[in-house]
């Protein structure tokens, strides 16, 4: 006992223990070492992605490989993504299959993989809440020995749509036994802003926007939330104490309706910290009473009470545009 009371011996014990813990932690790790993908594609093209994955084990385990991808919902990619891999423990391309929604993730407290990933990994810095995680399991289970370092090269073919999108793609690698139960049990990787050069209004998930509309896909008979964040960029309404919506609605008849009076109906609600919000029923706001006529898009500014100070796209004089359409 005298030995254990010695400070020197205690220090050695602490170091040995720490080393053991580090060895255990490191030897369980799954990492995405690098991601190879183009910086942009044209609308409708497929994004070819390669993930270089490293798996280090401290004990034998037999599991399926799990790969997840963070994409915009508008791509409706879950049934279309093709995923496969080659690895140091298998021969030839190995196929992967979409994990059906509702399938409980291991150690996920009953959550399925998309919800588990959203809770644990998040949105990768995408600022519009219209993304989804899509997860795949390898078709086969793989037995890995203890204290081994293995590699896998994952190939993903991600389809896009014709929409004009800026998005931060995200990837996660894990296995069917450990799930996301510890930060050493999975690897994640988020790319910079990826561009799909499509058509229509730019759906920019990457950069803070002065104005955003929710739900991002809406019709004129939805309740639409228009947000104005005066603090994200220099603009003439940064210090205004009241903000109003000034808009023009374009109809399927080919005409347009301007609603630009600063009053209670057009006044945004302050959320504090320069953030403002307004919930409108576009058909009511733009006085559309004929059932056969619909709004196709709106152009809008934010104004002060006088209506003389206007803020449009990028803080300038060009109006913000929102096109009514569904996915």
């Amino acid at each position: 006992m005298k030995y254990f009371k010695s400070t020197k011996i205690q220090n050695y014990l602490v170091r040995i223990l720490a080393t053991m813990i580090v060895v255990i932690i490191i030897s369980c790790s799954m990492t995405i070492d690098s991601v190879v993908q183009p910086p942009s594609v044209n609308g409708g093209e497929i994004i070819p992605v390669t993930l270089n994955v490293k798996i280090e084990t401290n004990e034998g385990q037999t599991s399926k490989l799990m790969i997840a991808v963070l994409v915009p919902k508008i791509w409706k990619a879950s049934q279309k993504i093709k995923a496969s891999f080659t690895s140091s423990v298998s021969s030839g391309p190995q196929q992967m299959t979409l994990i059906p929604a509702g399938t409980a993730a291991p150690k996920g407290n009953g959550l399925d993989w998309p919800a588990y990933l959203a809770n644990k990994i998040g949105n990768g810095g995408n600022l519009i809440n219209d993304w989804e995680w899509i997860a795949f399991y390898s078709n086969a289970d793989y037995a890995l020995g203890g204290n081994k370092t293995e590699t896998a090269t994952v190939s993903l073919q991600i389809p896009t749509t014709d929409d004009n999108v800026a998005f931060k793609l995200g990837y996660v690698v894990a296995n069917s036994t450990d799930g996301l139960s510890g930060t050493d049990r999975y690897g994640s990787y988020f790319t910079g802003c990826f561009r799909v050069n499509g058509s229509g209004d730019l759906i920019d998930f990457c950069n803070p926007q002065l104005a955003t509309v929710e739900p991002r896909t809406s019709q004129d008979n939805d309740i639409v939330t228009i947000n104005f964040d005066a603090g994200v960029a220099t603009n003439k309404l940064e210090t205004s104490s009241a903000i109003y919506l000034c808009g023009k609605g374009f109809t399927t008849r080919g005409d347009s309706v301007v609603v630009c009076a600063a009053n209670q109906q057009s006044k945004l609600t302050s959320l504090g910290a320069g953030r403002w919000r307004m919930d409108i029923w576009p058909r009511q706001f733009f006085m559309q009473t004929n059932d056969t006529t619909h709004l196709t898009r709106i152009e809008y500014y934010f104004t002060d009470i006088t209506g003389n100070v206007k803020v449009g796209y990028g803080g300038g004089n060009t109006p913000f545009v929102f096109t009514f359409k569904c996915q």
Binding site: P215, D222, C326
Partner: peptide
């Protein structure tokens, strides 16, 4: 869904 089917009220 009064507008887009993806928007559930």
């Amino acid at each position: 869904s009064p507008g887009c089917q993806s928007n559930i009220y």
